[in-house]
Design a protein around this nucleic acid. Structure first.
Length: 508
RNA sequence: GCGGGCGUAAUUCAGUGGUAGAAUGCCAGCUUCCCAAGCUGGACGUCAGGGGUUCGAAUCCCCUCGCCCGCUCCA
């Protein structure tokens, strides 16, 4: 079991799974590159997802929409407003506050201070309204009143955001007794801004999408009009998204550029609860089927106060990474919020005509939204194992065969007596269908270990007997079991093992 | 964004002011009929980047970038 990320990060670098982005220039925080093995792994995960939720279902279709969309999309979705809360930091106590919930209470005391000026105190309080915010300032003012006398007037109350810049220095923060410790309000906007066209004026402002979901909602009418789809049905999309995360952390887990695998599943309002329960289970089971069967995986329902205001239910699929329990996928019951918002902002009718009831309805939507990079990282963490073999450590990535970057390595046992030629012929036959790898160099034990570290589930070895009777040995990664298979059945055997129709024999 | 730690070969690390090292890995060859065996040879470093101090800096100082940990944040 993987205890910290260090060994995995170093293996990923060493074997070509994941590299720091633009490393030769010192890297860039929050961005990562997938190397030769990593790109296969991640692509296999995305392909498996696409096959399972689109190709093998009758009620799903796919979509691939642009990353940059009309900026109004992000007004409608709430990302432009919701992603940009101004925050204020206290330099003394390191606390952080929402600036729109901070009010300054200005007290004037009758007596003068040591400089002979009228004593005044600018006391900051926190709350949704001035009344809510008054507790801390009142308490502090009462203390000061003992020294400078009781104020004759009630305090003047100013929202921190409306305070003139020059006056900010006078403010005493909620958690300190010193003035001037608060920073100016700073906007923490997670949207990546850019400009469309060569002229960088404000009218050309656009955004890199922070999620793929809105492209699906924006195309809902197109798909309904052209796709011959009927409720209930879903639209799936895989693609890059971008968020200016305040603090990228934990290897690829929180990155600023990442890839999502999202479904918006549309249904009649009265069926939404059923479909929510269905997808909640279906998506959890998908991870279990592909190897996250340990107790490190869990399904957590959001508490009421955790829910977005438009959602009636949300569940997170979480994985216990070495750095903590973190979300892989969220399944949200979003009601008709998104379609309604887009109708409001676009002025277009996005309702659905139900043939049965002859009524127009606004479908409700269930959103299973998964992180492709997070899934990849979870499968990497889960796969990482160190076996003790005769006092030595055998490092193995136990990927599900469907995800393994290389499905099988074709190896001549020794580099002579016609074995390389026979092995190469098999390699050329197999690579038409599978990602396979040929290696004839060095001791076979070393080659087996190299494949273990790359997560290759099977090795096919051509030995002396192969030259006599046209059989090869299959070697299983997880238990090192070996058994003989006729060379003309190698392809069907490999396919059976990958698809799960065949299993590895108990003993060789 | 704050605080702390760190940054030397592909990886893990040693090197506290005076000629950049080890192990593993990698490459070539020999050997080898089954699990990182052995032998021979080989490549690989702007010591994260930039600036400063010094006769001389991987080493001391400053700045920047990146990674890790803890806060904070995560609509």
């Amino acid at each position: 079991m993987l205890e910290d990320m260090e060994k995995l990060v170093s293996l990923c670098k060493r074997r070509g799974f994941i590299f720091p982005s633009s490393e030769i220039y010192g890297g860039i925080n929050g961005f990562w590159d997938y190397g030769p093995l990593g790109v296969e792994l991640k692509r296999n995960i995305k392909d498996a997802w696409w096959q399972d939720v689109v190709q093998r279902r009758d009620d799903m279709v796919g979509l691939d929409c642009s990353i940059i969309m009309n900026p109004k999309v992000w007004e409608a979705s709430g990302h432009l407003g919701g992603f940009s809360d101004p925050m204020v930091d206290c330099k003394a106590t390191k606390e952080r506050y929402r600036a729109d919930q901070m009010y300054v209470f200005i007290y004037l005391f009758p007596q003068v201070n040591h400089k002979g000026e009228p004593a005044e105190a600018w006391l900051a309080g926190l709350g949704a309204s001035p009344e809510d915010a008054s507790a801390i300032p009142e308490k502090k003012a009462a203390k000061l009143a003992k020294k400078f006398g009781k104020p004759e007037q009630p305090p003047q109350i100013v929202p921190y955001l409306e305070l003139p810049e020059a006056d900010r220095e006078k403010v005493i923060g909620p958690s300190t007794d010193d003035r001037g410790t608060l920073t100016p309000p700073r906007s923490f906007n997670l949207m990546f801004r850019t400009f469309v066209g060569a002229l960088e004026d404000d009218s050309a402002t656009a955004y890199l999408r922070p999620e793929t979901a809105q492209g699906i909602f924006a195309n809902f009418k197109n798909v309904v009009d052209t796709g011959r789809v009927k409720l209930p049905f879903g639209i799936a999309q895989v693609g890059k998204s971008f968020r200016n995360e305040i603090n990228p952390r934990n290897f690829t887990f929180r990155s600023r550029e990442f890839e999502q695998m999202e479904i918006e599943f549309f249904c009649k309002p009265e069926d939404a609860a059923h479909w929510y329960a269905y997808w909640r289970k279906e998506r959890f089971d998908w991870y279990v089927r592909h190897g996250l069967q340990s107790d490190r995986l869990r399904l957590r329902d959001h508490d009421k106060d955790e829910l977005a205001f438009y959602s009636t239910a949300t569940a997170d699929i979480e994985y216990s990474f070495p750095f903590g329990v973190s979300e892989l996928e969220g399944i949200a019951h979003r009601g008709d919020y998104d379609l309604t918002q887009h109708m409001k902002f676009s002025g277009k009718d996005l309702t659905y005509f139900d043939e049965e009831s002859k009524a127009r309805i606004t479908p409700h939507v269930i959103e299973p939204s998964a992180g492709a990079d997070r899934a990849t990282l979870a499968f990497l963490c889960e796969a990482y194992t160190e076996d003790q073999v005769g006092g030595e450590i055998r490092t193995v990535l136990r990927f599900h065969p469907r995800f393994a970057p290389i499905k099988a390595a074709i190896l001549p046992l020794v580099k002579k007596e016609g074995m390389p030629e026979k092995a190469e012929a098999l390699y050329h036959a197999l690579r038409k269908r599978f990602a396979v790898f040929y290696d004839e160099k060095g001791a076979v034990g070393r080659r087996y270990r190299r494949q273990d570290e790359a997560g290759t589930p099977f090795c096919i070895t051509v030995d002396g007997q192969s030259l006599q009777d046209d059989t090869v040995t299959f070697r299983d990664r997880d238990r090192c079991v070996q058994w003989r298979v006729p060379i003309n059945q190698a392809e069907s055997t490999l396919r059976g093992l990958i698809d799960g129709d065949l299993t590895v024999p108990a003993v060789s």
